[in-house]
Design a protein around this nucleic acid. Sequence first.
DNA 1: ATGGCATATCCTATATGA
Length: 272
Amino acid sequence: MKIATYNVNGIKTRLPHLLRWLEREQPDIACLQELKALDEGFPIDAIRAAGYQAIWKGQRSWNGVAILARGSEPLEIRRTLPGDDADEQSRYLEAAVDGVMVCCLYLPNGNPQPGPKFDYKLAWFERLITHARTLIDADHPVIICGDYNVVPTDFDIYNPRSGKRDALLQPQTRACYQRLLGQGWIDAIRHLHPEEPIYTFWDYFRQHWEHNSGLRIDHLLLNRQLAPALQRAGVDRWVRGEEKASDHAPTWVELDVSRLGEAGPAASASPP
DNA sequence: ATGGCATATCCTATATGA
């Protein structure tokens, strides 16, 4: 099973890219961020024609998330991150797909910092940490993936000095991410590629894509049940190289779902 | 310190992104 996350930066503009990518890479599940469209603007017909069913949560101009599944229907679990009923930004979706609980998120950018936007980012992160605590030890497999807007370490950016004041690299931001991982989540890309610089985002400025001046900010986190199934992880860089591409590239994991039944208390308690 | 570019909208101007 291949699960991917892709910040499309505008679903209307990026639909051709999305369809080419789905056709070529055939992810079983795709989490999308930054739809930048109202619910009624989501191109569900084209996505169905490509063989996917979907749930989505739009918003005018900004944010917006979706979960696509090939050949099966995502069963929606929640449409908001718990902890703040007044939060109206479309940044979170949660669904069950083929026995896996899929959490799709678009964590706030937080710039400029300091300021109210950075405060909102940290508050959102605290809500995520609280919610993730209830999922890490679940007896079912869980993946929390999306655009975290966090550069976890200086190794995850082409030049740490270039974004020293950026909200994505602040100590408070990184501390939140480390506290999340500290619950026991596996950062799939870094787990399988500990020595390799890997980026998922290259901004549109100064030919950063051409020079591979990128950031790793799209992450896929696996809970204890799902982690043993992890086989491969990577970035579909070719999508970023397309004409009029999003500034993010799809980032994915490949899981051996036949192993999912083996884990858990019952299996570990049984004799060899 | 700023801006480079891209997207969306109440579109020859502004807000947001990372």
